[in-house]
């Protein structure tokens, strides 16, 4: 155990900490941007014109139907070949690993979140929206005051699960050399030929983070549960 604690001091400790910070940044930013992208996608698909709905549906299906690792590879290695010619100048999607990681997570999360929100829209009883109309709320007020709060309650548990899934996916980004937790611990494990120890500790750290997130989610659910439908 003393040798294990030894890693936490000095250079190694700093690297592990920066890896943990990067993992959390990727997770939180990816979740937040993914939520925004997912919500916009869901709204566009529901209220936008048909062709937009079809186009976005195709995008969502592609992202949900392919491995995150392949998406990360495509962005990171394929990005520089994805160029836009404008007049004489050309701009390519050249991203450093971290940028590719954030972008990849956001797109990936956005696709899944959009499906959650769509299910949330559908699960709100029509009568609630009709009731809002009869008391004179306009479309925007109905969305803001009725649909959004009700949907939050409905999709919260699934969103917590999705965000846990994203936390675990961040580890995949080490493969495109994003310097997150797994990447940093991996380096130390390789150097000291301590693979099992390194991956055991990694597993325990992620497990703890996931449990923490799950507990926070259940706490939030319990706090919000009194707003649940009267009939449930």
């Amino acid at each position: 155990m003393t040798s294990l604690l030894g890693y936490l001091g000095g250079e190694d400790g700093r690297n592990i900490l920066s890896g943990l910070v990067n993992t959390c940044v990727l997770w939180v930013v990816g979740t937040l941007l993914g939520t925004v992208l997912g919500f916009l996608t869901a709204v566009a698909r529901r209220y936008g014109p048909r062709p937009i709905d079809w186009l976005l549906k195709a995008c969502v299906e592609v992202i949900r139907g392919t491995p995150f690792l392949v998406q990360a590879y495509l962005l990171y290695f394929g990005g520089p070949y994805l160029c836009l010619e404008l007049g004489g100048a050309s701009a390519c999607l050249t991203l450093d690993p971290f940028e590719a990681g954030i972008l990849g997570l956001t797109i990936y999360a956005g696709a899944y979140f959009s499906e959650l929100f769509r299910a949330g829209f559908d699960a709100i009883p029509r009568g609630h929206i009709e009731a809002a109309t009869t008391v004179g709320l306009d479309r925007w007020q109905t969305l803001r005051r009725i649909i959004l709060p009700e949907m939050t309650m409905l999709v919260l548990p699934a969103m917590v699960n999705m965000s846990i899934l994203l936390l675990k996916e961040t580890a995949v980004l080490s493969i495109i050399s994003v310097k997150e937790l797994k990447f940093q611990v991996d380096i130390i494990g390789n150097r000291d030929y301590a693979f099992v120890e390194a991956f055991t500790i990694l597993a325990l750290v992620y497990w703890a983070l996931v449990e923490l997130c799950g507990r926070a989610g259940r706490y939030a659910e319990a706090r919000l549960s009194r707003y649940r439908f009267a009939h449930s």
Binding site: K168, I175, F199, A203, Y206, E211
Partner: peptide
């Protein structure tokens, strides 16, 4: 709980 709570990548390597 363990296998749902940890990244598959790390399970595979472990």
């Amino acid at each position: 709980s363990f296998f749902r709570g940890t990244p598959l990548l790390i399970q595979l390597l472990l």
